[in-house]
């Protein structure tokens, strides 16, 4: 059996779930980078937080894979911002990942939660 240190487990979990988190947040409307990172931190009540150095490279990777696309948008009286929105491919990917995640969480819950049932 492979031993995974708690720190590494945390990192891998974040990395694997980060894509799903970002795609989910873009499901209903385009958002800019800071907004996405704020929402992740807020909705997870501070449990999940990305720093700049890893968050933006992740955005660029998703963009490169064609799952979302970024566009500069100018609004009156504001600096222009780069907004990201899901592509059709991204939407498909989100659906797949969400279903896998659900299955995974259910499985985990059934094992980890069974002790308490």
């Amino acid at each position: 059996m492979t031993y995974i240190a708690p720190k590494v487990f945390d990192r891998e979990l974040k990395k694997g779930s980060a894509e799903l988190l970002i795609l989910s947040l873009l499901e209903h409307r385009p958002r800019h980078g800071y907004e996405i990172s704020k929402l992740i931190a807020a909705r997870s009540q501070g449990v999940l937080r990305f720093n700049v150095a890893s968050f933006y490279p992740l955005l660029y990777r998703l963009e490169q894979r064609g799952l979302m696309e970024g566009r500069w948008v100018e609004k009156a009286g504001q600096r222009r911002r780069r907004y990201y929105r899901l592509t059709a491919q991204g939407r498909k990917m989100l659906k797949e990942q969400r279903s896998i995640w659900r299955d995974f969480v259910n499985a985990m819950n059934q094992i980890t939660g069974a002790e308490h049932a």
């Binding site: 720093n51 700049v52 150095a53 890893s54 933006y56 490279p57 660029y60 990777r61």
Partner: peptide, 17 residues
């Protein structure tokens, strides 16, 4: 500046761009 974590930014961007 801590969040910017300079070495990590370059390392993460390198394979992407």
């Amino acid at each position: 500046m801590e969040e910017l974590d300079s070495r990590r930014l370059a390392a993460e961007l390198q394979p992407r761009l």
